[in-house]
């Protein structure tokens, strides 16, 4: 009996979204298959890894992170360069956490200075995320978009309460927008429709489904991303065909499983390998579900995900 490989052909295809310019640009999306299914279609660009840089010195981060990143904490420029030069990041994701009005409440101008300094120091493309405060983010991201004109960066996140101003800033200064909705297929689609109705081209939109970490709601994120992706491929739904970005590093590294010491949890084994695996397994699961851009934190987790790409023949 001859075995006929049961392959699937999809009518839809993920949109290509370009980030950065010239020789240093990267492209997310473009595939007409589920991630790693290249036996039945093509994936012209492998998924991308953005490494996180914070605009303030982190407090209470895991020892595993401090050991490898601690020397550049408090200096976003050095941190970004290290991720680019030493750790092979595809992009930098600058998290402007200090602008949070409920936290350090740094001014828009200070944030813009940090963005300019990082942009000036790196050659790989940049993603700039605000603090998550919708009102402040809309002010901050508007000025960031202006300051980065011509660089084709990603600004985010646009949410229900601020998408108009964030999308307007992206249109005005030709940047890409990451639109965030809380783990829900229909809400993600709705935000894409609203932003494209404003005139933002679909090629300038990423879907951020607000993922959870392994053990903290990963199964919801996994299935929502999988359903997003099947809607894009099987049903050829144009408003679901944007690449998916997962802001996962921060979710992983705030779990106790990723950060507590051996003394506090001897039954969980070596804390360094545990934290790295917590991030790596979260990342690999999100990739399998359909994520195109991972925002990650630990260099060794990044290295393991890159090895995974290599083993799947994606370079």
């Amino acid at each position: 009996m001859a075995f006929q490989a049961p392959i699937e052909q999809y009518s839809g295809k993920i949109r290509e979204v370009t980030i950065g310019t010239g020789d240093n640009k990267v492209v997310a999306g473009g595939q007409n298959i589920l991630t790693f299914y290249d036996f039945e279609g093509t994936m012209p660009h492998r998924p991308l890894i953005a490494m996180e840089v914070y605009d303030v010195e982190p407090q209470d981060w895991a020892t595993a992170l401090k050991d490898t990143l601690g020397s550049v904490w408090g200096d976003p420029v050095a941190w970004a360069k290290k991720c680019q030069d030493d750790f092979g990041a595809d992009l930098i994701c600058l998290q402007l956490i200090s602008t949070d009005p409920n936290g350090a409440d740094k001014s828009v101008d200070e944030a813009v200075e940090t963005v300019k300094a990082v942009l000036g120091a790196i050659s790989i493309p940049l993603i700039v995320y605000g603090s998550g405060n919708a009102d402040k983010d809309s002010e901050v991201l508007k000025k960031v978009a202006e300051a980065a004109q011509g660089q084709n960066i990603v600004i985010g996140t646009a949410v229900e309460d601020n998408y108009k101003s964030v999308a307007a800033a992206a249109m005005g200064f030709n940047q890409v927008v990451s639109g965030e909705t809380p783990i829900d297929v229909n809400m993600a689609k709705q935000l894409n429709i609203l932003m494209t109705n404003l005139g933002l081209p679909a090629e300038q939109i990423l879907i951020d489904p607000a993922v959870g970490a392994l053990g903290y709601g990963l199964e919801y994120a996994y299935s929502v991303i999988e359903r997003d992706r099947l809607a894009a491929l099987q049903q050829n739904d144009a408003m679901m065909q944007m690449p998916i970005i997962a802001n996962m590093g921060r979710e992983v590294w705030k779990t106790k499983e990723a950060k507590i010491s051996r003394e506090e949890a001897p039954e969980w084994g070596d804390p360094t390998r545990r934290g790295i695996l917590w991030e790596t397994i979260t990342a690999v699961s999100l990739l399998m579900a359909g994520t195109d851009i991972l925002i990650m934190r630990h260099p060794e987790s990044v290295n393991l995900v890159k090895k995974t790409f290599a083993e799947f023949g994606l370079n």
Binding site: L214, G215, L218, E219, Y222, S223, E257, E267, W268, G269, D270, P271, R273, R274, L277, W278, I281, S285
Partner: peptide, 19 residues
Amino acid sequence: SPEKAYPLFVLRQNIYTDP
């Protein structure tokens, strides 16, 4: 070893939870 088994078993629990 535990630091490998624990995240893998949690993943298994997550994936095999009835949606």
